[in-house]
Amino acid sequence: MILEYKNADIFYTDEGKGTAVVLIHGFLENATMWQNITPELSKKNRVITVDLLGHGKSDCLGYVHSMELFAETIAAVLKQLRIRKTFLVGHSLGGYVALAFAEKHPQKIKGLCLMNSTSNKDDAERKTLRTRANRMIQNNFTSMVRMSFANLFGKKSSVLFKAEMEAALHEALQTPIQGYIAAQEGMRIRPNRNVILAENDFKKLIIIGEKDPVLDFETSLEEAKKTNTELVVFPNGHMSHIENKEELITVLQKFVKKL
């Protein structure tokens, strides 16, 4: 389905009945990343997936897609569907978007899950890397995206999940350069949102990979502890929906059960 938001088309899906659950993909991903998760969750829940601006079938809006702007597109979809309260599950970038949504609309949240994501802001090194990537991407899009994806999987996972990795890479390569740049800039300027986890009383969950090459494991442990957030640790890397699919489905089914 398509929603028009500020003259941009936003693509979303809506399946099942019951408690509303919004699944928000990560950087260079789109709603297809949830194709093995949605059928299971939608058996007892109403599952919505959204293509974020500049990803999948959704248009771009300028060259800075802030987390707040992404979040408002989610809010617009929920308004169109007349959904008043929901669970949010965000993978990586999707987690940053979920936090921005929760900051603006805490009363609409039943629960928030950061999946291979964090409420911390970028450190100086990561900010520099994002700026550098945006300079390089215009002339080296395919090679840079390939390299980025290869770095998300460990050696073992690269062999075990080769077909899934290639499918995810194929989707990533469909992302427009403008979408890449706008999301990187949005992530670079996002604030620390530890307080959103620490001070709200909705259900909270952080899912991390012990071998995640993107997020420091010890930092994630400390984040969960200081924000009083439930923590689930998987043994693999950044792509839990691929590397730990069955375990993830079980964890999410439990998380979105009625309070």
Rank of each mutant, 00 (worst) to 15 (best):
184 Q>W: 14
214 V>A: 10
242 I>Y: 05
248 L>Y: 02
255 F>K: 03
242 I>D: 00
168 A>C: 10
236 N>S: 10
218 E>M: 04
193 R>I: 05
239 M>K: 07
233 V>C: 14
212 D>P: 10
238 H>E: 00
173 L>W: 05
174 Q>G: 09
162 K>N: 15
195 V>Y: 14
180 Y>N: 03
255 F>C: 01
187 M>P: 11
165 M>K: 15
190 R>S: 02
199 E>F: 10
207 I>L: 13
219 T>N: 09
200 N>Q: 11
181 I>G: 07
177 I>G: 09
209 G>I: 04
173 L>T: 03
171 E>N: 13
246 E>D: 12
203 K>M: 15
248 L>T: 08
210 E>V: 09
244 N>D: 11
232 V>L: 00
182 A>F: 02
230 E>C: 13
174 Q>P: 08
218 E>N: 04
190 R>T: 02
200 N>T: 12
218 E>G: 00
167 A>C: 01
164 E>K: 14
251 V>I: 07
173 L>M: 08
192 N>T: 08
202 F>R: 06
198 A>P: 12
245 K>F: 04
222 E>Y: 11
240 S>I: 07
209 G>C: 04
243 E>L: 02
198 A>Q: 13
226 K>Y: 01
207 I>T: 05
206 I>A: 01
218 E>C: 04
235 P>E: 02
166 E>N: 12
173 L>H: 07
222 E>C: 10
241 H>P: 15
216 D>Q: 06
180 Y>V: 11
246 E>Q: 11
194 N>E: 15
217 F>S: 04
225 K>P: 14
238 H>G: 05
226 K>P: 04
193 R>S: 01
209 G>H: 02
171 E>G: 12
220 S>R: 15
246 E>W: 06
241 H>Q: 14
233 V>L: 10
254 K>P: 00
181 I>E: 08
236 N>R: 12
159 V>P: 07
159 V>H: 12
236 N>G: 00
183 A>I: 07
206 I>D: 01
254 K>T: 10
237 G>F: 04
227 T>E: 09
204 K>E: 00
193 R>Y: 02
206 I>V: 14
189 I>D: 10
219 T>S: 11
209 G>F: 03
249 I>R: 03
193 R>G: 02
171 E>Y: 14
205 L>N: 04
162 K>H: 15
180 Y>M: 10
233 V>G: 09
182 A>I: 04
163 A>V: 11
250 T>A: 10
192 N>E: 14
183 A>V: 02
232 V>M: 05
171 E>W: 13
187 M>K: 07
217 F>T: 05
197 L>P: 01
215 L>N: 02
232 V>Y: 10
196 I>W: 04
197 L>M: 08
216 D>Y: 06
230 E>F: 10
209 G>Y: 01
190 R>N: 01
179 G>D: 06
159 V>Y: 11
249 I>K: 01
192 N>M: 06
237 G>V: 04
213 P>Q: 08
212 D>Y: 14
208 I>E: 15
238 H>L: 08
253 Q>G: 08
228 N>Y: 12
227 T>R: 05
242 I>R: 01
223 E>S: 01
162 K>E: 15
189 I>K: 15
254 K>L: 09
232 V>W: 05
226 K>T: 15
167 A>K: 12
168 A>F: 05
248 L>V: 06
254 K>S: 13
